[in-house]
């Protein structure tokens, strides 16, 4: 005869048993990773000596509040600009073909050298001499490059102006053509 019973005697490990099991597991982990752990302790010690741990501790204690303050600081118009400009700068650098930049930088550095030479010589330059020097192939190359640069910049300025006026409808015209 076996009546239905619900009573279950569970054997729970005692607090001490659980603790000693955990401690043993931890000890073996420590032993297995002796070198890494020792280095870690050294680092922690140094951070502690510098007082950095206390700072981090304080921040973590108030993570949500600190985060809020931080995000508020970042969420300012000047910060928006900084970030945007930063990103644009990165984009700009990324968009330049490296060979081109190299040529330009080479030109720049050579130009700087020459410029500093003339500064050092402290020689007075007459207008006549200046006019003559424009005719040299070197100066011509530099100046025409400069003008081309200005022209390219101007193109973008004009495009931008037009774009603001009728940009949204732009595709209509083109798609229309393709249909016809």
């Amino acid at each position: 005869m076996a009546k239905a019973i619900k009573q279950i005697k569970r054997i729970f490990p005692t607090e001490e048993e659980l603790q000693s099991k955990t401690v043993n597991e931890m000890l073996s982990t420590l032993a297995e990773n002796r070198e890494a752990i020792t280095t870690l302790i050294q680092i922690v010690n140094q951070l502690h000596d510098l007082g950095l741990l206390k700072v981090v501790n304080g921040m973590l204690d108030n993570l949500s509040d600190v985060g809020e303050i931080a995000i508020q600081q970042i969420n300012q118009p000047s910060m928006h600009n900084t970030i945007k400009n930063g990103m644009n700068a990165f984009k700009f650098i990324g968009s330049i073909p490296p060979e081109l930049l190299q040529t330009f930088m080479g030109g720049m550095s050579n130009g700087l050298e020459k410029a500093s030479q003339s500064l050092n010589e402290n020689e007075k330059t007459s207008l006549w001499k200046l006019g003559n020097s424009i005719r040299t192939p070197e100066s011509k190359a530099a100046l025409s490059t400069m003008f081309n640069f200005l022209e390219g910049m101007g193109e973008v300025f004009i495009q931008k102006k037009e774009g603001q006026q009728g940009g949204e409808q732009r595709w209509n015209n083109e798609s229309l053509k393709s249909r016809v």
């Binding site: 409808q169 595709w171 209509n172 015209n173 798609s175 229309l176 249909r179 016809v180």
Partner: peptide
């Protein structure tokens, strides 16, 4: 439709 409206605005018929 937007397609057609656009066409009128640009002064071209959209009927081929």
């Amino acid at each position: 439709d937007l397609f057609q409206i656009g066409g009128d605005e640009f002064g071209e018929g959209n009927q081929a």
